[in-house]
Design a protein around this nucleic acid. Structure first.
Length: 662
DNA sequence: GAGTTTGAAACT
DNA sequence: CAGTTTCAAACTC
């Protein structure tokens, strides 16, 4: 079974091939958190076990703290449930225990399901009905045959190391987890790459097994499978379901099962904010897997509510290690809000329905049914590169839907359909929370690092650029551009502002600036723009952006003063607005018909004028009658009293009338 | 808003 | 690797 041609791997940046995130160790006891030696901050034990029945198997994700665990339950054929897990090695399904022969320590089971470890170190569990799979020995890889959901796990390691494997299965063949690779090797690092495809499965974590790998590497597939035992699976970090090396950023991994046939694998480039999505066509899986392939969505950082993922191709998102960087929108935990709604002809993932600040940008440019062509020269394998931000934006969109058409007839393309917010416009919140400015590129097609969007790993969205290729419609060009940038500078997409050396400022520019005329006190300077001081690695001339610089201090003071003024103005405006609002509230009848109006609200201009007229009339009469001033004043006051009485009487009458009428 | 300045990125 | 060109953002008027 051909999973991912090596030629495709060759296209991808080398970083993808790096394996640093997860250490795999063979001798760990089952589900023993304390014994885990992986490079984890908060180790989680992830156990995979199945029930004796064919209907359900459980993927239990546990952690010593139990706070971040997200157990997964995979229903045969149709659903994978992620449910909280407390214990570290228990199957969560209430089904009877598996056959004794497959039972291993901690309730885990041997792998009896077929799988394929491809030449490029991808482990595939296939829904292959027959046992005539690839000859494992001929490929130097083991093969297990299994009639369960197809599961693809890729190490992407050039070294080709162990992999992990998980798999659900039928009653006759209890779900199993397999580990491949040579167990005799030292603890190894490997990267679990996105799993996807029709039968997309999320590679949640690294996996540790107890099996001795020699069994796997040298024995026949069947033998290997019998000897394979799943021990533990670990995530690298609490919120992370896919271990990835390099400088991570707050990101999601997402699988876009965009077409019915091709599987999708997602790859995280260490240190890159791009998400590589690899489309894989399982040539041997055949269409039989279509309706029974489960999708596994890996654990999120949040305590998990059950997450039901349907078998239909869908998009899955997995949060990865949050990083130091910053410009990115904090990914929305996937925990409980994502749902998958399968349809006959389309697979839809309805994203969290909560009000979301970010909208996927360039899907606005995608007409429904946009086809993403396969990668040139790679046969029926297509791929796409998605920036993390984009993924995040997608996830945060209330209405984003990526769908694949079941009627899609070829295996060389991906059909995507984007559904935008109903109003088709960005919300206020989204516009205000947008982390970057729109670009204005005109000549670079937004495919060079001149473009901030591209440099930040984002698709252009609501930009003012012309002839923009930084979108899904030009994915192939975009991919080439990314590769070109990475060829020039492997760290091109890594954050420029990183940690400084010990003793230095916490943050400093990774390359330093080269300013010559700005004194590093204008935003031309990347250091100044990032609000950090120049460091020893800067090559700037006439730098004034250092700690004791009087110019810098002056600027800082001015900036502070300006900020204070802005704050004061804001506060004043807020206060005034509040007062006006309060005044309006007070002068607005609390009840219709004036029933609850305050007394003074009855003294309108007309009433006041009428009252004055009455008083003036009394004054004139007193004057005409030559009354003493004291008498005149008394008459006027008496008239004023009567006026007040009339006003009060009228108010009361109005209130009564209102009460009657209402 | 048009024109200028600036420095990173790209190119040679 | 250095010099030059291209580019888009920052800035000025």
């Amino acid at each position: 079974m051909d999973v991912v041609p090596s030629e495709l791997n060759s296209i991808l940046p080398d970083e993808i091939m790096d394996t640093e995130a997860i250490v795999m160790e063979d001798s760990l006891p089952v589900a023993s958190p304390t014994s885990v030696s992986m490079e984890t901050e908060v180790p989680e034990i992830f156990s995979l076990c199945s029930t004796a029945t064919s209907t359900q198997m459980t993927l239990a994700l546990t952690t010593p703290t139990t706070t971040d665990s997200v157990p997964c339950t995979m229903n045969s054929g149709t659903q994978l449930l992620l449910t909280p897990s407390v214990s570290s090695s228990q199957c969560h399904t209430p089904a009877p225990a598996p056959k004794p022969t497959t039972l291993v320590a901690g309730g885990l089971q041997k792998l009896s399901a077929p799988f394929t470890l491809s030449a490029n170190h991808q482990l595939i569990l296939n829904k292959v009905g027959s046992s005539s799979g690839v000859d494992a020995k001929s490929h130097g890889t083991p093969l297990l045959k299994h009639e369960g959901q197809k599961l693809v796990v890729t190490t992407i390691s050039k070294g080709g190391q162990p992999i992990v494997l998980t798999l659900p299965h039928t009653a006759a063949k209890p779900g199993t987890v397999v580990r491949t690779g040579d167990a005799t090797v030292q603890p190894q690092q490997f990267k679990v790459v996105a799993i996807g495809g029709r039968t997309e499965l999320k590679p949640v974590v690294g996996v540790q097994t107890v099996s001795t790998a020699s069994q796997l590497g040298s024995s026949s597939p069947q033998t290997a499978s019998q000897n394979q035992q799943l021990k533990t699976v670990q995530t690298v970090k609490p919120v992370q379901t896919v271990a990835v090396g390099g400088v991570g950023t707050s990101q999601f991994k997402t699988i876009f099962p965009l077409a019915a046939t091709p599987s999708v694998q997602q790859i995280q480039v260490p240190g890159s904010r791009f998400h590589y999505v690899r489309l894989v066509t399982a040539t041997t899986a055949s269409g039989t897997a279509h309706n029974s392939s489960p999708s596994i969505n890996s654990a999120s950082s949040q305590p998990a509510k059950p997450l039901v993922v349907n078998t239909a191709p869908m998009r899955m998102s997995v949060p990865i290690v949050p990083a130091q960087t910053v410009k990115q929108v904090v990914p929305k935990p996937l925990n409980s809000t994502a749902q998958v709604v399968p349809t006959q002809t389309q697979q839809r993932l309805i994203m969290p329905a909560t009000p979301l600040p970010q909208i996927q940008p360039n899907l606005t440019n995608l007409p429904p049914g946009t086809v993403l062509t396969s990668a040139p020269g790679v046969g029926n394998v297509g791929y796409a590169v998605l920036p993390a931000q984009y993924v995040t934006q997608l996830q945060q969109s209330s209405f984003v839907t990526l769908a694949s058409s079941a009627s899609y007839s070829t295996t060389t393309g991906i059909q995507t359909q984007a559904r935008m917010p109903l109003n088709g416009t960005l919300s206020v919140s989204e516009s205000t929370t947008r982390p970057r400015k729109p670009c204005n590129c005109t000549k670079s097609q937004c495919l060079k690092l001149y473009c901030d969007c591209f440099a930040n790993g984002e698709f252009c969205s609501n930009c003012n650029c012309t002839n923009c290729f930084n979108n899904l419609e030009h994915e192939s060009e975009r991919l080439k551009a990314i590769k070109a940038c990475l060829d020039r500078n492997p760290e091109a997409f890594k954050p420029k502002i990183g940690k400084g050396k010990e003793g230095e400022s916490d943050r400093r520019h990774s390359k330093g600036c080269n300013c010559k005329r700005s004194g590093c006190l204008k935003n031309y300077c990347e250091c100044y723009e990032a609000k950090i001081m120049c460091s020893s690695i800067c090559k700037c001339v006439g730098c004034k952006n250092f700690e004791e610089s009087p110019e810098r201090k002056t600027l800082m003071h001015l900036a502070d003063a300006a900020e204070v003024r802005v704050q004061q103005q804001t506060a004043a405006k807020t206060k005034l607005s509040s007062q006006i609002s309060d005044l309006l509230t007070r002068t607005t009848p609390a009840l219709p018909c004036g029933g609850g109006r305050l007394p003074y609200t009855f003294v309108t201009k007309e009433v006041a004028e009428a009252t004055c007229d009455c008083l003036m009339e009394q004054a004139e009469q007193a004057e005409l009658s030559s009354q003493p001033q004291a008498v005149a004043e008394r008459v006027i006051l008496e008239e004023f009293g009567r006026c007040l009485m009339r006003i009060i009487s009228s108010a009361g009458k109005a209130k009564m009338d209102c009460s009657i009428n209402c």
